[in-house]
Amino acid sequence: MASVKDLRERIASLKNTQQITKAMKQVAAAKIRRAETARTQARPYADALGEMLRDLVLAAGSVDHPFMKPGRSGAPPGAILMAADKGLAGAFNSNVVRAGEIYRGEHPEAVFYTVGIKARNAVRRMGRPDHATWPLGARAKLDTARDVAERVAGDFASGRICEIVLISPKIVTRISQRPELRRLVPIVATEVAGENAPGGHRGAVEFSPSPEFVLSHLLPKYLEFTIFSAMLETDAAFFAAQLLAMSNATDNAGKLIDELTIAMNNARQAAITKELLEIVGGAEALSG
């Protein structure tokens, strides 16, 4: 049985750990709010952009834009893998990485692009040390999203990759996330327009100078914004996962502290009893 001193030391160490996890939990809770606000504020832009895209696609019909045509046949697909910069969030990052590995299993020749340090490390471990990568945080997400979009769009246009998919965490409920795979490019007109989309096309619309021209501006912006909003979602999902992980860690540390405290009390009591018995035994021996 461990000595009282050992147990006391372990309890002290656990209490320190618990304080750290508790602090991280509170930080995550504060950051989750900020990340959620950012997502809410991005929504009006998303709605308006989606609506404009729908109107344009309906007006222009089939459009001669590289994004709306299948990529060069024979080229490998391109995948953007998005995870967080940091860990300590349960299985959050490894779930995304696993989805990336499954994708690589299906498309061994796939070209990977990564956003987030954890995603970068995972793809490096897959044996692709020199793929294009960006951090999730670091600087303005909009600028990062623009860089990512430019890079993948460039590779798509030059025929290096034949399609662009995005693997990123999706928020299912406030406390649960799962990785989701979406194809970003080529954009399928019928998917964008939707079947009998509500609101539909508003009759004669004047496009300046032409629907094709406006669409050629809007499609790259759409790609950029989709990546941006996925980054916001990854951020929010990460803090939600971290909040849960840290909350569990705090609870577990608490349980362990309780168990060890009981063990320590028992050990202390046993030691006291033993001493008493020795004293009594000694006294009796003397008086006897």
């Binding site: 404009m52 109107d55 619309v205 004047e206 496009f207 300046s208 100078p209 629907p211 406006v214």
Partner: peptide, 16 residues
């Protein structure tokens, strides 16, 4: 992209 464009109420549907 075509120059300055002013929109008044009741403008024809327009996207640029």
């Amino acid at each position: 992209t075509e120059g300055e464009e002013g929109i008044l109420p009741k403008h024809a549907p327009f996207l640029s």
